[in-house]
Design a binder for these strands. Structure first.
Lengths: 217, 217
DNA sequence: AGATAGATAGCACGATCGTTCGTTCTAAGT
DNA sequence: ACTTAGAACGAACGATCGTGCTATCTATCT
């Protein structure tokens, strides 16, 4: 049988019309994810409950749930949002510094300020997420692992450039130094969260500078 | 009125007779706590559920519950048990080494082996617990923080002795070096758990030895 | 040997979990 | 202006959560 005589061009499928999401919906979705990232640093990605999250932003469970369709999708979107925030607050400030050692120092400093300004109530989102999701195979762990790998790669790139520019001793191994700096960042977050005190940040700044050879600076 | 003529010595209070726990009960309690410590490294101390735990060791929820009386008490006992295991597997082997730098190296090595032999399926119990409970005030956080403080103090003592014995440069700051080593341990656990591979342990061993000045040893 | 309290199980509770459904409202596309 | 689909809601589901109560069994003590 011939198709109905409609003015729709044949290139466009008449069935399955996906309309763009509405502006108010996207605004709500953003607010949900920002609250979800904060809550997850306290309760964990698994302990993040849809009821609590809905109450925190003052909407109904079902209304919130409709934005994601499953808890897994909510978790994935939350990790994505946390990645955006981390990129804005830590990675971009570092990239704005001159290539090499300056970027390495800027990255650490941006991370410490990220903690100090208490963007999240539970410290660094990914420090907690790596430890929590490490033993839970699935898409969420994969997303967290991908971010962590990217962050380590970023540090390693800075280290390599710094060595090439003679700002770090040529006997330094980028992989090893990256591992050390990653540990410093982890230890700083753990201590900051556990003692709820910014005192550790000064210690961490000192350790980073000493380790990178800026003793008196 | 005179007390009843019983053969019990007067030093013992006749009321509130607390009898010793039974042998089978203590054995069960130990089995519960060992399973709880393992489960907690995967699901977290908060995500540790009494139903799952009871099913894991093949007993009823209420039977298990009677051993503790509340989830909080179960969590506290679990932290205590994890502390005993950590002490057996990591602290004691280190203390058996000659005082100073050797103890420091033995401590790191014992920790790496603690991970490698997979005592817990989720890596180091306290690495996860610190990050999870850091934002959750209460007795459990306090217990975890106390253990962490004790562990840091142990490292610092080793470092101080090593400096006094001339095995580490005198310009080393014990607090700073302790912070670095703590970070190394944290990073090792995180990577080990996330990648489920012992490859990182060799990297960590290398980094520790380099950092402590044993380049070619 | 008899008494007693600890050890364990069964059952049920109120609350909360993630999830689904049906409905109402409204922003956006024709 | 009319239509349509996204946004949000209330209500309810089955499951599981931590927590009690009661009953039965048995190790241990006199």
């Amino acid at each position: 049988m011939p198709e109905t005589t409609k003015s729709t061009p044949p290139a466009q499928r008449p069935e399955r019309a996906p309309r763009r999401p509405r502006a108010d919906g996207e605004r709500t979705r953003g607010a949900i994810l920002r609250a979800a990232a904060s809550l997850a640093t306290v309760d964990g990605l698994e302990g993040l409950s849809i009821g609590h999250l809905a109450a925190a932003i003052g909407m109904s469970k079902s209304g919130l749930y409709a934005h994601f369709g499953s808890k897994l999708e909510l978790q994935l979107a939350t990790v994505e949002e946390a990645g955006r925030i981390f990129d804005d607050e830590v990675v971009q400030p570092a990239l704005a510094a001159p290539a090499g050692l300056a970027q390495l120092l800027a990255l650490c400093e941006a991370f410490f300020e990220h903690l100090q300004r208490r963007t999240f109530p539970g410290g660094c989102f990914f420090s907690g997420a790596v430890l929590e999701m490490g033993t839970r195979p699935g898409p969420v762990k994969e997303a967290v692992a991908a971010f962590q790998a990217g962050f380590a790669g970023l540090i390693r790139g800075f280290v390599t450039t710094a060595i090439e520019q003679g700002e770090l001793p040529s006997h330094e191994d980028p992989v090893q130094l990256t591992f050390e700096l990653n540990g410093l960042i982890l230890a700083t977050d753990a201590s900051f969260v556990l003692n709820d005190s910014p005192a550790v940040l000064d210690l961490a700044r000192m350790v980073v500078r000493n380790r990178l050879g800026l003793k008196g600076q």
